[in-house]
Design a protein around this nucleic acid. Structure first.
Lengths: 129, 129
DNA sequence: TATGCATCCTGTAGCCACTACAGAAGCAAG
DNA sequence: CTTGCTTCTGTAGTGGCTACAGGATGCATA
């Protein structure tokens, strides 16, 4: 019988988060012992791991849930999965581009710091133009 | 006399956010007309712009506030500013690396979709190993 | 003067996905 | 029986906004 602590260790999802997932209906409701402690089956551990992997790939909770449903669907789910994946990849690439721009802007500002072009080039940049 | 709507247009900060900033003590308290509407001076618009630029560079609100204080400090603030900048740049670079990893993992998964190596390679990857 | 529309006000609740308690109860080993 | 670990429920907090509801004010036009 798997308790929540071991479920957490096995899935990589924290105890608090597992309880949160259950509360929010993101995963199925765990069984209980006579004294009220949650128990988990292997299938439920897989469920947790599936959500965890999806989250680690940056999918939102609702996407993760959708993917899980698709994983249990009869078939022809693959196309829908691919669409979800492409949409997410697109968003990730957009965020990546944004972050790269930010990085170079910031790197330039920091590099100017040591050059002593003015009193403080970084503050100058932040001040009004 | 600058009203909040124009302050918003001039600074690029939304009206709701300006009010939020005031409520939280992030910017100084705006003056009021007889009927209770907020009024802004040029200095306050600059203040908003400063916060906006800092936020656009990804600094946290508390960093932005710290930078603003440093901008008004007598001098030798530049070193502290540089430290803050470097710390932030470091975090941004870490996040960037993480996102790049995520992007390639996701891109690979999506690329496999069309190859039809299995029923659905993406779902396979999300399922337990 | 009346009307209508834009702008503004306060206060509260919601977003995302957790995370962090407090206070109580259960369980296993020595 | 005690000690210490685990688990329980319930609630509140995080960051940084954003989105209302319901009302007041300001200004231009008919």
């Amino acid at each position: 019988m798997i308790a929540i602590g071991e479920a957490s260790r096995l899935s990589g999802v924290s105890i608090e988060t597992i309880r949160y997932y259950e509360r929010e209906g993101i995963i199925s409701t765990a069984g209980r012992t006579a004294s009220g402690r949650r128990t988990y089956t292997d299938a439920e551990i897989s469920e947790l791991r599936f959500i965890k992997r999806s989250r680690d790939l940056g999918f939102s909770i609702s996407d993760a849930v959708a993917l899980r449903h698709l994983a249990n669907a009869p078939s022809d789910a693959c196309e829908t999965v691919e669409q979800l994946g492409r949409k997410h990849l697109f968003n990730v690439q957009a965020k990546l581009a944004e972050l790269q721009q930010l990085e170079s802007a910031l790197a330039e500002l920091v590099a100017n710091c040591t050059k002593g072009l003015s009193d403080c080039p970084m503050l100058d940049a932040l001040r009004a133009r």
